[in-house]
Design a protein around this nucleic acid. Structure first.
Length: 171
DNA sequence: CAGAAGATCGGG
DNA sequence: CCGATCTTCTGC
């Protein structure tokens, strides 16, 4: 028996809460050939609102970031360094730009690796996690303890934001 | 319109 | 430590 997390789950809490709460849940991918794979989420980061200078949403509403302003429960996928697709889950209510970056799943650490693992590309931008037939999140149990630390690769965001302990790992 | 930098990764 | 590789944003 499995339990697919619905839109209410993603829109009713902020990215900071959900980044930690998503640990232990399963990222589920149904590939074109029908094969279904489930990956336990073990590392995440929260990007919160327009003030957070590490968040793309701090640039304002653009064609790239507009999905972050939508109601939680959809995917924000984007290409970084010309070769890595990163998976983000939009959270919170509409017009409240937040997202959780999936940095690692069991046996596969690194946001670019996760994107490659599940075959992420631009067509996943805006995908609805409640209704999609190819990607969704299922309830799982947390194992071990959770540690938090500064987010990776955001030194450009300034002292306030780069030092936020908004990266979460289940050990 | 040109140039720089990026929520990264793998190889040497 | 450096190159890959391309989108996005900034400045002139």
């Amino acid at each position: 028996m499995t339990h697919r997390l619905n839109k209410d789950y993603f829109r009713s809490r902020d990215a900071l809460f959900l980044a930690e709460d998503l640990l232990g849940n399963f990222l589920v991918r149904r590939y074109e050939n029908g094969k279904i794979s489930k990956f336990r989420i073990v590392e995440t980061e929260a990007y919160l609102g327009t003030d957070d200078l590490a968040s793309h949403a701090s640039k304002g509403r653009t064609k790239r970031t507009e999905i972050m302003f939508e109601e939680g429960g959809v995917i924000y996928a984007y290409l970084i360094y010309g070769m890595h697709w990163l998976l983000n889950i939009v959270t919170g209510p509409k017009n409240h730009p937040e997202a959780v970056l999936i940095r690692g799943v069991e046996n596969c650490i690194g946001p670019g690796r996760v994107g490659k693992l599940i075959g992420l590309d631009r067509t996943f931008y805006g995908e609805n996690l409640e209704t999609s037939s190819r990607i969704w999140i299922e309830k799982g149990d947390i194992t071990g303890k959770i540690i938090s630390s500064p987010r990776i690769g955001v030194d450009y965001a300034g002292e306030i934001w780069k030092n936020k302990l908004w990266r979460f790992e289940s050990k």
